[in-house]
Simulated scan of single mutants.
Amino acid sequence: MRRRPSRDVFTVGVHAKSVRANMAPLQVIDVLAEVVPGLADARLRVDVHPEVADPAAHCFAPEVLPRLRELAARGLVDLRVHDYFEDDELWAYLQELTCRCCRTGSALIRAGWRPASTWGRRCARPRVASTPNNGRA
């Protein structure tokens, strides 16, 4: 396992990506935007893909980017709008975080994010193990 570099800032990260159907990033981000600035030497980093603002895109979410820009203008989030990460960019992103927060509206967590915990990252995610919609009791 690679060692995490030391840092002076506690960085909480939320990667809203392309806001797929099971994601509710604003619910998570709005709460974090209230809490994180109150922590000593902490910041909230929010990453999102630009296609959420494109009406022609399958993941068009017209409310997301304006809200994130509003929070950024108020100094509550460090907003990064970019295309998909390349491998080295993903590694650099994960190295910057102290904690990542899952942005789903349900308990479904994509298995692809699990390896990040083996890279020395903490993960905050929903406590529930299943939802009525995923066929498990």
Rank of each mutant, 00 (worst) to 15 (best):
N22F: 13
A16E: 02
S18T: 07
L94E: 08
L65K: 02
S117M: 15
P126A: 05
I29T: 03
L65T: 02
V52Y: 00
W91P: 02
E51W: 02
E89W: 12
T104A: 13
T118G: 14
S130N: 07
F10M: 12
D47W: 14
V31R: 15
R136K: 13
L108M: 10
R127H: 04
D78T: 14
C101S: 07
A129G: 07
D47C: 08
P66D: 00
L97H: 06
A107P: 04
Q27R: 11
A33P: 00
E96C: 13
R121M: 10
A61C: 09
G75F: 05
T104V: 09
E70V: 02
D54K: 01
P50R: 04
R2D: 05
W91I: 08
T98E: 07
Q95C: 15
G135W: 06
G135P: 06
D88W: 11
W119I: 05
R3W: 09
N22M: 09
S106R: 12
G120R: 12
M23S: 12
K17R: 05
R121T: 01
R3I: 14
W91R: 15
V46L: 03
D54W: 02
D54G: 01
A137Y: 08
C99E: 09
V52F: 01
P132Y: 09
N134H: 10
R121G: 03
R3H: 11
P115A: 06
R45E: 10
P50W: 03
G75D: 04
A116E: 15
A42W: 06
S6F: 12
R136L: 13
V19R: 00
L94S: 05
V64W: 00
T131P: 02
V12Q: 02
P62D: 04
V35D: 12
P126H: 06
R2I: 13
V14G: 05
R122G: 14
D54H: 03
L71Q: 01
R45A: 11
A107I: 09
A42F: 05
R7N: 10
E96D: 14
P37W: 06
L94F: 12
A33D: 02
P66F: 01
L71P: 00
D54T: 01
W119Q: 15
G38L: 14
R43M: 08
I29E: 01
E51T: 09
A57R: 02
F60A: 03
W91A: 08
S117K: 11
V31Y: 05
N134Y: 10
W119S: 11
L94N: 02
P5I: 13
R125N: 04
E96H: 11
A111T: 15
G135F: 08
A16V: 04
R125E: 12
E86R: 15
C102K: 08
N133P: 03
A40K: 15
G105K: 08
D83F: 03
V128M: 10
A61M: 01
G135Y: 07
R43P: 02
L79H: 00
L97A: 07
S106V: 08
M23G: 08
C59V: 15
R127P: 08
M1R: 13
P37N: 08
A73Y: 01
P50A: 11
V81S: 01
E70D: 03
D78Q: 12
V31L: 05
R136N: 15
R122E: 15
D41V: 00
C99F: 04
H15C: 11
V9G: 10
H15Q: 04
A24R: 14
N133S: 14
A124H: 12
P62Q: 07
L26C: 07
V19K: 03
R127W: 07
D30Y: 06
E63Q: 09
A111D: 12
E86L: 15
